[in-house]
Design a protein around this nucleic acid. Structure first.
Lengths: 217, 217
DNA sequence: CAGGCGACTGAACAAGCGTTTAGCATGCTG
DNA sequence: CAGCATGCTAAACGCTTGTTCAGTCGCCTG
């Protein structure tokens, strides 16, 4: 019998199906992927997919749950170490992209799935955004407590601005890579993106370049 | 015969089909909308849709062309008056959202379609992003010339940051409305969003007017 | 008035969809 | 050993999809 799974693949068949579905869903969207395509990619029959997950929508929900769990683990770590990293000038591990880059391989389908999730209008997407919003709010509060930021006149909006800026990198990844010549989620891309971002956060659009002394009166 | 079009509707049947398709595509995505649903919404038969546009994909392309043309007209105006408005402090008509809000009714499907277009990976989306990127670049250059901004050490990235920030409002509209309690594309929403955004652009996250006391928490 | 042409419909079509079913091994359990 | 779940396949089912087709209506033109 022919297997698409490598010899050393210790995942269960169920997990293989789930992972291939995740990849294809992230790539083309669930509506444009058929059960037979998922089955083909996993090296099994279409019937087995339904046997394991009840239905195509059941599989989609399972993928949602799985992705949410992976994200929760990653964000949990960011929350834990957030306090120290934030106060360490120059560390700058405050952006989602950096967390993702450290935890995921470059070709991981998760960023793409995150994008679909946020834009699908689904309940899962809403849950995810709410979590990110709360995380963003905590980050802003910590920055404020450390004297690195002011809460602004409308802290909720300021929180939203920071989060939107962070998420935009995921949502527009392909276009940004096209326009800049560098994948913004790669190490090189982040090395270009982060300083520019931080520079604006530090002193606005008209701030003097880093290294020089700010205008003191 | 029953018509869904109002009595005073002077659009051709062809235009009605196109508009209903635009609305449904923006709402649910082209893959999730059937020809029969479009026909039903337009009050015609499924055969007529194909008769007018050749195929479902032909209709999709026509909608793409139409949306792109409408955008081009709006962006053209922004380019024309950009120079003066930018130099007028407080006017702040530099963001895409404001241009859209001034030209489109609150329930227009165009913002939603713009979102689909940018995230679909289609050639039309790529063209649109490139135009917006160039526009953003010109805006940054004008701000620089007016002494309101520095080009940064990596002007292309700075351009991308500004554009991404602008587009994030469209892409995350529903989530932001949920989190903030206000549609960011409404007049009220923009009145909250713009000052916060401009404040960061003006002086960063920790801006405090010089000589004054820092904001109390 | 004849005739053709474009708008339009309802029925039909083939293909593809998600799902169901019957059946075949395999391995554990009493 | 019999019995029975479990993992799995191939075939088939019913439905929906985009598309085609034959034909009707009304209008313009010669």
């Amino acid at each position: 019998m022919l297997y698409m799974r490598s010899i050393q693949d210790d995942r269960t068949t169920r997990a293989v199906i789930r992972d291939e579905a995740l990849r294809l869903f992230a790539e083309r969207g669930p509506e444009s992927v058929t059960v037979r395509q998922i089955a083909g990619a996993a090296g099994v029959s279409a019937g087995l997919v339904v046997h394991h997950f009840g239905s195509k929508d059941g599989l989609r929900q399972e993928v949602d749950r799985h992705v949410l769990a992976v994200f929760a683990a990653m964000l949990g770590e960011l929350t834990d170490e957030g306090g120290e990293k934030l106060l360490d000038p120059g560390a700058g591990a405050t952006s989602l992209s950096e967390v993702f880059a450290r935890h995921l391989p470059a070709d991981s389908p998760l960023p793409g799935y995150l994008r679909r999730l946020l834009l699908s209008g689904s309940e899962t997407g809403r849950v995810l955004f709410r979590r990110l919003f709360e995380l963003s709010r905590r980050t802003l509060d910590e920055l404020t407590a450390a004297g690195l930021a002011a809460p602004g006149r409308d802290p909720a909006v300021r929180t939203a601005v920071l989060l939107a800026n962070d998420l935009a990198v995921f949502l527009l990844r392909d276009h940004l890579a096209d326009a800049l010549g560098t994948d913004p989620l790669s190490a090189d891309g982040m090395a270009r993106w982060a300083p520019e971002m931080l520079s604006i956060y530090a002193g606005g659009l008209n701030a003097t370049p880093r290294g020089e002394a700010p205008p003191t009166i």
